[in-house]
Design a protein around this nucleic acid. Sequence first.
RNA 1: GUGGAUAUAGCUCAGUUGGUCAGAGCACCAGAUUGUGGCUCUGGGGGUCGUGGGUUCGAGUCCCAUUAUCCACCCCA
Length: 419
Amino acid sequence: MLTTRPRGTNDILPGEVEKWQYLEELARQVCREYGYGEVRTPVFEHTELFARGVGETTDIVEKEMYTFTDRGDRSITLRPEGTAAAVRAYVENKLYAMPQPIKLFYIGPMFRYDRPQAGRYRQFHQFGVEVFGSDSPAVDAEVIAMAMDIYERIGLKDLELHINSVGCPDCRPILREKLQEHFRPHLANLCPNCQGRFERNPLRILDCKNEKCQNIGRHAPTTLDALCAACDSHFELVKSYLDAVGVQYIVDNRLVRGLDYYTRTAFEIMARDIGAQSSVGGGGRYNGLIEECGGPPTPGIGFALGLERILLTAERQGITFPVTRGPAVFIATVGTEVEKQAFTLLQQLRRQGIAAEKDYLGRSLKAQMKYAGKLDARLVIILGEEEVARGVAVVRDMQAGEQQEVPMGGMVDYIKAKS
RNA sequence: GUGGAUAUAGCUCAGUUGGUCAGAGCACCAGAUUGUGGCUCUGGGGGUCGUGGGUUCGAGUCCCAUUAUCCACCCCA
């Protein structure tokens, strides 16, 4: 155990971490353009926040949270998602008193106690945004378009955007009743899971993957059949805004997401070829959540993208990220006499903003050259006792395979000019 | 929480019906004119065969347990 990481977690090492940095920077850039400010909240919160915010009956709260009691006897939970904490921060810091809407983004680790499999980990990373304080369908469209924009800039292909409207507190009870009416005669034939959902949240029976449930639900009324006039027109406007900017979508009237807080717009983005866990992102509107969490009645909407799954999709699709290059300069030495000069030169170069490296294992010149090649250094400065005595050093261009003598006094300037 | 598969050098894997089976390729290190990389050649280091039991004269090779990984269910990112 001493040398194995906890189940479902990952080390991201040099070589891999550059992809993460690239992704994160891309997301931050898009946020700048769309006007979203970063919020950094704790990775743990009071358990109660998630129980109330995410929903007591969700799988996340019922069986997937990393919950523990701290030394002060408080129940603490490692955040399983980002929205609840963002809402808490909005309320606690009274951001509702600022000019609305408030547009935030976050990026960081989330924790869920699941059985790991392809694209699913116990510690995983999400990038997400939240907009508080506007119920405009244009905001729904902005948020969805932004997510799609990010995928597109990464270069992901063949993604499917599914959208739906799950109604509001006015129309959902009506749908709920209609659904129960439809499923009641077949109650005994539903899967055990859905039998429980019948009372708690009949909406969820609609997107159950169980074959029997799907058959029974085939002719059930869908979310869109019961929308009230306000929700219906909201949904129509969202679609028209998406149409206006050319965002392709599939209306999926069986899409019901697993978190209880969604109202009206719900959406999910799926990728092919990354296994069963095909969702690379999702989100929706949550007009009741902020009030539920103790804030003033405030509409909100957001999405979250799974970074591991994005990276997995990119890998499967053969998408390459900008590669990081090796050091501009490698300083090789011959003889112990020149070590100090090499070290001094190394630091001078670095202070000029030039990535420079040297050997620290006492390697032979041949081995140093080989090592420099492995590091993908562009130039190698060879400090030989003979040349140094004459005040010069050899600079070798590794790509061209050519080298020449350069006076030590002008070395930094020479390298600067070359790199 | 349920089911299936896998677990041999840093990596990818061979290892026949249990008896030189502890190997290969790559990687790493060193040499091939005692001051020069990328190709080639030669040599070298490195593994309690996931862990713990058991069967057997003898087990990577069979059995059980355990841990981990992978895949799927469930759920979601």
